[in-house]
């Protein structure tokens, strides 16, 4: 390789290298370093094993539970929509997608704050209820409110990969199934569902992982009453001022991310379920 070519290659890949090193590699190394050392700089696994302490384990359990529930709800909402989108005409399809993607253009914090206004004791929903002569409901600061917020915020991440993978299923495949005597249900269960597994896996991870690690939603819609593992980590990095413990617990969360990546690699070999 000539010197010139080398220089050109370096200048082209430079920004990317800079980004990867600055945005991923250095933070990751720092997290590992903080997570595996004690205050005096000596090596320790205590920060990682601290996940077993009652407070942490409970927070992790709650986070797993809430994110699992919201992932299931997201799937139940998104799958029928993807089937509908598959069949819709171009214009209708574009419009439905637009409606679901539109909120994503607004700031995520702002959208969550809007839910606060809706669910608050003196908020919009309770205002309508009292106006109709019905008793007020306790909506905000409950597990339900948090799951609601997770579903609302992460639903587009389930819809996109499902839609993507399903719109690629050829009509002839379904026609063939019907020719061979399959009922509508059988087409759904035996053809559409198995063929969209890559999209499902990718959608599930894209909802599950961010829901598992969120602390903003639980803070804003949980009124500080519900403490997820994301809140623990946030606390350690801010008020708790214990970066070692925060990084150690983040490493535990990394395990979940790695598991998800392994899942995607196994089921979505061709990258069909990718967002774009």
């Amino acid at each position: 390789m000539s010197r010139n070519k080398q220089l050109r290659n370096l200048s082209l890949s430079g920004p990317y290298l800079f980004w990867i090193i600055g945005g991923t590699l250095i933070p990751l190394v720092m997290m590992l370093w903080y997570g595996l050392t004690a205050d005096d700089g000596s090596f320790t696994l205590a920060n990682v094993l601290a996940i077993g302490e009652p407070g942490h384990a409970k927070a992790l359990g709650q986070a797993l539970l809430y994110s699992a529930i919201s992932t299931v709800i997201c799937f139940l909402l998104a799958f029928p929509l993807a089937v509908i989108l598959r069949k819709s005409k171009m214009g209708v399809k574009g419009f439905i997608l637009f409606v679901f993607i539109l909120p994503m253009w607004m700031n995520f914090l702002l959208r969550t704050m809007a839910w606060q206004v809706l669910l608050e004791k003196g908020g919009v929903i309770n205002g309508v209820l009292t106006w109709m002569g019905l008793p007020r409901m306790r909506l905000i600061n409950t597990p339900g409110a948090i799951i609601m917020g997770m579903v609302y915020d992460f639903l587009p991440f389930m819809i996109m990969p499902l839609y993507n993978v399903m719109s690629k299923i050829e009509n002839s495949v379904i026609e063939a199934a019907k020719d061979l005597g399959a009922s509508d249900w059988q087409v759904l269960y035996k053809v559409l569902l198995p063929l969209s597994v890559p999209g499902i896996v990718s959608g599930v991870t894209m909802v599950f992982v961010p829901a598992l690690t969120t602390f903003v939603i639980s803070n804003m819609l949980g009124g500080g009453k519900i403490f997820l593992i994301g809140n623990v980590i946030e606390h350690e990095f801010t008020v708790g001022d214990n970066w070692h413990l925060g990084a150690g617990l983040s490493l535990v969360m990394m395990v979940f991310i790695l598991i998800s990546m392994a899942f995607i690699a196994k089921f979505d070999k061709n990258g069909e379920g990718n967002l774009i």
């Binding site: 302490e53 942490h56 409970k58 927070a59 403490f227 623990v232």
Partner: peptide
């Protein structure tokens, strides 16, 4: 401080 933190997290996660 760490002791307070530990108990506080237990209370928050309860």
């Amino acid at each position: 401080d760490q002791m307070y933190n530990r108990y506080w997290k237990e209370f928050k996660a309860y």
